[in-house]
């Protein structure tokens, strides 16, 4: 496995601890490579928006990802008719700050959507994401009608050959993935890669045709420019929807990476599992590296 540089930072005490590591083992590389952008940032102990500001700064700022005049699409997890504390959907405070940062970096427009599991208007509303996005100047886009999806080819996919994906993925310049870290009954964990499932119309096809492989295959179509894993509230059990508040712990963490597989591997560790346990992550670690 290729070496990766990580930076982890705690906000609780107001001081960045700044321990840089490579994936798989601790290594003191921080001093020698401080000028290089990090592959992955992990932040703990702050509010979602504060942690994001800190994390994106360490990645070189939002201008590294969004250029003036670009059209940005943000894909949080808004799958369920649940309030933020239930840990089923991405934290609205985080989504709001990302929209703000994109616009600050000069984005022409910022769109936010998800193909929800529950009735979409209720998900958008009760997740708090609709209000947050609109307040920040972004636009919520529906994803509940097949008419919003366009057929695209998946060159190189082993199970997915073609798929109907949301039109915003086709028409936007920048794609930012903002999943929430949670337990998941189908894929064991739902993080960045699993979040891509909300970009397609026919999720049943994935379930039918080797779920883990399909999750991995999606990356042949598109990899997000940036992955921001929300681990503020983390659903540890009964995912992805949750049965009660008992399922949720407050972890106050955030992981940022350009590399979707690295983000998921790191988030898996935060969850308390080994990435090798999660098929779609493990498989990608081997294939894409």
């Amino acid at each position: 496995m290729e070496r990766r540089k990580f930076i982890t930072s705690g906000i609780g005490a107001g001081i960045a601890t700044g321990a840089a590591i490579t994936f798989g083992g601790v290594d003191n590389l921080l001093a020698g490579n401080a000028a290089q952008p990090y592959d992955l940032i992990a932040v703990r102990g702050g509010e979602p928006d504060v942690m994001f500001d800190k994390g994106i700064e360490a990645l070189g700022g939002m201008s590294q990802f969004v250029k003036p005049g670009q059209k940005v699409v943000i894909k949080p997890n808004i799958g369920w008719d649940r309030v933020p504390e239930r840990g089923a959907n991405t934290n609205p405070i985080l989504v709001k700050r990302i929209v703000e940062q994109c616009l600050k970096a000069g984005a022409k427009e910022v769109f936010v959507f998800d193909h929800t599991c529950h009735e979409w208007t209720k998900c958008y509303k009760n997740s708090g994401i609709e209000a947050a996005v609109v307040a920040a100047g972004g636009k919520m886009v529906p994803g509940d009608s097949e008419r919003y999806y366009q057929k695209v080819e998946f060159a190189g996919g082993s199970k997915l050959k073609e798929m109907k994906v949301h039109e915003l993925l086709v028409t936007s310049d920048v794609f930012i993935n903002v999943p929430i870290l949670k337990n998941h009954s189908s894929s064991k964990l739902s993080i960045s890669m699993k979040n891509m499932m909300g970009c397609v119309w026919d999720r049943g096809f994935w379930h039918k045709n080797d779920l883990h492989q399909c999750i991995a295959d999606f990356l042949h179509y598109k990899k997000p420019a940036l992955n921001v894993v929300d681990a503020y509230y983390v659903m540890k059990q009964n995912g992805p929807m949750g049965v009660s508040l008992d399922d949720v712990i407050t972890m106050k963490s955030l992981i940022l990476s350009r590399d979707i597989v690295a983000a998921d591997a790191a988030a898996t560790k935060f969850f308390g599992k080994d990435p090798a346990e999660i098929n779609h992550i493990h498989g990608q670690c081997r294939r894409i590296g």
Binding site: S185, K208, P240
Partner: peptide, 24 residues
């Protein structure tokens, strides 16, 4: 069931179950 016939993970049912009456 897909898990039985295709020998691959699925779990769509449990995913959508609000009480986890269906669990994996």
């Amino acid at each position: 069931c897909i898990v039985e016939t295709e020998k691959t993970d699925c779990g769509a049912c449990s995913e959508h179950c609000p009480t986890k009456a269906v669990h994996m």
